[in-house]
Nucleic acid binder design. Structure first.
Lengths: 242, 242
DNA sequence: GGATGGTTGCGCACACTGTGCGCGGCATGG
DNA sequence: CCATGCCGCGCACAGTGTGCGCAACCATCC
């Protein structure tokens, strides 16, 4: 146990310093995202994060007020992965909205912990990235012809759908990957039980059977696209009604 | 410190037993919901829950496998508060869907912690109440004329929207109530900062200003209703397109 | 030069968490 | 009457977020 340098003796490397970029908010946030992607939200602890950066747990508190603030930073950072396409022509609002919705969903599936965390960070966060995004996304709907007040509500509607859907998908995905089995194995295992549970209503089993052979990821993609089209149809109806 | 009865002496009430219904799964779940409603999710601990029931923390483990299972039970229990109206006429599917969406949102605002927890309990739960509900809700859309496969997807779309919207509302509500201030005070305080942040895009401030004087709860109700109508319009379009 | 003051990393400690283990009392059934 | 099961509980362990104060560094100024 004496190997811990109680005294920085002469031959102990005085630590060239700066060999590591040391700690910084950006670095901490980046490593936190890495840890979250690899191990999930409930495995993120300040101690573990510190260890991953060859640092003590409490050292992080020099750069981050507390864990909640860290999470706010992390969430805004992943929002930064999203980009809203520049509005080309007003007629293309539907393609633009589809693209934004798709990239938001993709981001939430890439970082499955985001969904579980969104409910906890209130709107108090509204980091710079999210602020920029919502502004750019608003522009899409305004260009489409929605008045500002409507554009705001329509945008929230679409985002709510995507977040709701993707959160549920991500929870499922985390459950699957944590079990070690593949998604297809999981549904194959769950399917007979579900069918049995709905034995009295044979029709309820039909959607399950219909997608029994297909790649579950494709099924999820289709379901998402179906709902997205439905919501966009609703937006279009609103737009037509002026 | 000797007051702890190391030995149950004769004059120590041998505890008439059964004076309390003691511990039971139902009782535990009910108290957990009470604690969650009062203090929020991060304040729920087995020790605190035990104390609230005049019991030790670990006593609960006789009836509940672990905290995660408790939460699954609790979530299914609050799903039990929802009721799906009996299908009257197929034409009334829209009213029926509106009613279900509204009661789901109301439940999630009554129990603001539900949203934060939904992302964590995967579909692994699917307790009896949720199973019953989705079956009954499916029936509404089938009666409306949707084929089974479409009814399933349309239902998921609607639910995703409601959950996404209500989760965000609930997070905001929890933030507000935890601060002690009223919702109106909060927005009044936040408004100038938001307007300043969007100084370069004056039109972005318009939605904020438009609702500056109104009761925030009414604004939220309106926004939810607006999005709900939009989604239902999309469903109607799908139905018309057969 | 040397002193000074601010910044950074860290060890320690505290209050708290979920939960496995085993004890001792209780109710029931033979 | 004893035996068998159940139930509540105290103890203990590993792990958490985080406040406090020390030690080492850096840049600045006398």
């Amino acid at each position: 146990m004496q190997d811990k340098q109680a005294i920085p003796s002469v031959w102990t490397r005085p630590k060239k310093k700066k060999e590591q970029p040391a700690l910084s908010v950006e670095h901490i946030v980046a490593e936190a995202i890495g840890l979250l992607d690899e191990e999930g939200i409930e495995q993120l602890s300040m101690r573990k994060l510190g260890a991953r950066m060859n640092a003590g747990a409490t050292s992080l508190y020099r750069h981050v007020a507390n864990k909640d603030e860290l999470i706010e930073l992390v969430v805004d950072e992943v929002y930064g992965e999203l980009t809203v396409p520049k509005v080309t022509t007003p007629e293309r609002w539907r393609e633009n909205a589809t693209e934004v919705a798709g990239s938001l969903r993709a981001m939430m599936l890439r970082h499955p912990w985001v969904g579980t965390v969104l409910g906890q960070v209130g709107l108090k966060s509204l980091g710079p990235n999210l602020a920029r995004l919502s502004g750019e996304f608003m522009a899409v709907f305004q260009a489409a012809g929605f008045p500002v007040l409507d554009a705001d509500k329509v945008m929230n509607t679409l985002i709510s759908y995507v977040i709701g859907m993707a959160t549920s998908e991500a929870a499922w995905l985390q459950l699957v990957t944590r079990s070690g089995k593949t998604e297809a194995e999981w549904v194959a295992e769950l399917l007979p039980r579900a069918i049995e549970a709905a034995a009295d209503r044979a029709d309820l089993a039909e959607p399950l059977l219909a997608s029994s052979g297909v790649d579950p990821a494709v099924v999820r993609d289709d379901n998402f696209a179906y709902g997205l089209e439905t919501v966009l149809d609703g937006c279009a109806a609103r737009l037509a009604r002026l």
